[in-house]
């Protein structure tokens, strides 16, 4: 999954979509994850880094992460791919 080119992410958790003019806000964890996604980290890398740093178990992380990705997709912040692709 890739973040679309038009998306600008600021360090204070503010997200702007220059194509639609919409803006979004992220909580600190959302910001940390979207930054990793934006630089093309895969699921495994992100999981490893979060699990190492934070007090969270693998399954809880996985669930939250995929829900977060689904929301990014829902808000059209990601490049639209094939609907049959796994997230």
């Amino acid at each position: 999954m890739q973040i679309s080119e038009e998306i600008k992410i600021s360090d204070n958790g503010f997200v702007f979509n220059s194509r639609t003019g919409e803006s979004f806000s992220l909580n600190p964890m959302g910001l940390e994850m979207i930054k990793m996604i934006a630089i093309d980290n895969g699921f495994d890398e992100i999981r490893e880094s979060i699990l190492e740093k934070y007090d969270v178990d693998e399954l809880a992380f996985e669930k939250d992460f995929y829900e977060f990705l689904a929301m990014l997709k829902h808000h059209q912040l990601t490049q639209q791919g094939n609907p049959l692709d796994f997230v």
Partner: peptide, 14 residues
């Protein structure tokens, strides 16, 4: 000691 985790969230600003 690990930091406190919180669920990642994004929400639209209206």
């Amino acid at each position: 000691k690990k930091s406190t985790y919180e669920k990642p969230i994004i929400s639209k600003i209206t």
